[in-house]
Structure formats: structure tokens, C-alpha cells
Design a protein around this nucleic acid. Structure first.
Lengths: 187, 187
DNA sequence: CGATACATGTAAGAAGTTACATGATTGT
DNA sequence: ACAATCATGTAACTTCTTACATGTATCG
């Protein structure tokens, strides 16, 4: 039955959790913030909102005042918040890393005010583990890469490795920031 | 008419330029190398190859020997190489950066043996410019980011900035490597 | 002889892109 | 009056995903 929510759907749920919006508001967010690269096209957003509404994860109310355009303000429902939370809590696996860091960072961006600090730290630690093991894999590939075949291919792979290393450094810094220094051994 | 080639199509062209492959070979490349996250599903690759063949950008020949399975080996055609080269030479714009670095790095990976060293250096310098201006934009967004609204949202944005900064450092190093030190002024 | 790897495809469905279509309100 | 912005949607098309379908060769 209820077909699964796409990344765009979760992005909409996350934004609607922050505050109620019209479809147009959401389009503007995608158009103006460089945060995630979703399309601002009405052809993607309005159908996605309709799907979420049919599923019961958001509810839209039409506002019609005098001297005011007709607009439909969407709010997240308890069911929608449940779906969002489930998505945020999903364990981080190798697959998530391979498909790109974008969705992972989107999840992280929405965790505030939904997950506990401990859960957020747990997510970051899982990211660290997965990124690190993926970097190790990429390095293996680099080592077994035929050097003569493609110079730029090698360099591109190196760029990927460095990008993941930057993400690893970031996760550790954020964890340190979220966990107030308990330098001397605790439980 | 001839509908435009997708990213997957260009990836196939690039790989077939390196060496002729069967559809199965290409699937294995996507399955085993962590290089780009394309699906290994036959439902995407075989239709993509057929589209390229109909367009005249690749040609497949059926090999049928005794004690050998029937297989169709695809080669890139001169027309296909032309398309590939055009894609590699396309100027780098802001849009390309917003849509993600993956396609840009894929292009770079295939430039070897197709573009001149000068063109490759030009591409990297264009990347540097675009990444840098994009980082500036992201920093502006970070500055005008309501600090109380979302701690993790801010942190996610910072992660993106750092990731781009790593890419910028990489471009400069590769440029330096490709341009043998002509410290004292030359033509 | 059975499992695994080789090898190629199709079919149904979902989702996104682009373009079209409409209309109200606000600012100049 | 006109343009720009607000505001919502639909339609055609392409592509990708998932699952199904088939069959050969090799290895143990």
C-alpha cells in the first residue's frame, strides 16, 4: 500500500516540521537556499505534497481571506512526524555512503528538535565509522589502480578520498562540540 | 530529435572509449568500483546502450564462437567520441556546481587521452573559480543563518563548505602537478 | 549434477523534468 | 496599464527501479 516516501518527500516533511508552508514557500526555499539541490519546479513539488497528503503525513488547509490570494498551507501531521523520525533514526550503512553524502547530511540537518543529543552523537559516530571504512576501500582501489591507464581517473579518485576525509574531520569536531569535554574517564 | 544523452550515457561512452565492453562488463564496473554510484541493474544499462546505439554513438557487434556464450561487444563510434568530447569541453558554470560535484569529477576522470593538458588545466582552473565563489555564497548563507533555529542545520552547512574547500585545495595541487614549475617567467 | 558466474533482455510502475496553463495581487 | 511576483496546478515525456524471464558455461 502506501508507497514509500522519496528523498524529496522527506525534505518536505523536514521543512514542514520547522514551520508550516505553502507549496510556493517550499519552492522558494529550494530556489534560494543552496542547501540541497532539489528542483524548484512546480511539477515535482505539488505532486509530492499531494502524495504526502494522501498518505496522511501532511495536511493542507486552504486560506482564503478578503484581499488575499487563495493559498494552501501545509502542516506536518503526527503520522508524518513519525515517518520523519523513523527516517532520521535509520541506521547508517555502507549503502547510504555509496549513494552520496547528500541525503545523510540532509538527515543530519533535520535532527535538531526531533532527536536527542545522544542520538545525534550516535549518528555522527556511525558516519565516522562508515566514512572511514569507505576511505579505506577507496585507498585500496587507488593502490590497485593501473597508473598508466588514466592519470585524471586516479586524480579524481584522490579527490573523492580527500572529500571524505574532510567529512570525517567534521564529524569528529561536531561530536567534540556536542559532548562537553569529559577528559577524565567516565562510565 | 536525437534526445540528449544522460549522465549514465556519458559514463558509458567514457568507459567504452577506454576499451570496448559488453553490457555485462559495464555492469560489473559499476558494481565493483566505488567510483561513481550508478546502478548496476540491467534495466538501466541495456536500455541506455540501446539508446546510444540507435543514436549512432556506439556500435555493438555480436560475438558468437564455438564454446563461447553469445555476447555483444560495444565500441564507441567517431560520432560518440565527438559527443563525449563536447561534454568534456562544456564550460563549467554555477549550475554544474549546484547539481553536485559528482558529474564534474566524472568528466574530469574521462579527460585523459581525449583533451589536451592545457584544456585539463583550464577545466581545473574553472572548477577552482566556481567552487570558490560557491563557497563564498555558502558562507554568506551561514552568516545570515538564524543561529537558534537549527544547530544541526548550521553544522551541515559548515560541512558542505569544508567539503568544497577540500576540492579547491585538490584542484590547486593537481594544477601545480600538471604545470611543471615555471617559476621564472616564461612565455 | 548443482551452484555460481556469465550474458541479455523485458514489463510495470514511480518519479522527475519541461513546458504549458491559469489567474490574482502588488508595485510602478 | 503593464510587469513582476504570488500561487497552484496539469500533461507529455523520459528515465530509472524493481522484478521477472531466459539460457549457457564453468567449477567443484
Amino acid at each position: 500500500m502506501s508507497r514509500q516516501i522519496t528523498t524529496l518527500g522527506y525534505a518536505l516533511l523536514g521543512l514542514l516540521h520547522q514551520k508550516p508552508c505553502t507549496g510556493y514557500d517550499l519552492r522558494k526555499i529550494f530556489a534560494e537556499t543552496p542547501f540541497m539541490s532539489f528542483s524548484e519546479s512546480p511539477g515535482s513539488i505539488y505532486p509530492a505534497l499531494r502524495r504526502l497528503e494522501e498518505k496522511g503525513d501532511v495536511r493542507g488547509r486552504i486560506q482564503q481571506g478578503s484581499g488575499m490570494r487563495r493559498r494552501k498551507v501545509f502542516r506536518i501531521t503526527p503520522a508524518g512526524l513519525g515517518e520523519l523520525k523513523e527516517w532520521l533514526e535509520k541506521p547508517v550503512g555502507r549503502d547510504d555512503v555509496i549513494r552520496g553524502t547528500e541525503e545523510l547530511m540532509l538527515r543530519f540537518a533535520f535532527m535538531d528538535q526531533i532527536l536527542s543529543r545522544a542520538q545525534i552523537v550516535g549518528f555522527l559516530k556511525a558516519l565516522d565509522v562508515e566514512f572511514s571504512s569507505y576511505v579505506a576501500l577507496l585507498k585500496e582501489h587507488l593502490a590497485s589502480f593501473p597508473g598508466d591507464v588514466s592519470l585524471t581517473g586516479r586524480a579524481a579518485l584522490e579527490s573523492g578520498i580527500e572529500s571524505y576525509q574532510a567529512r570525517i574531520g567534521w564529524t569528529r569536531r561536531v561530536v567534540a562540540m556536542l559532548q562537553p569535554s569529559r577528559t577524565r574517564g567516565e562510565s
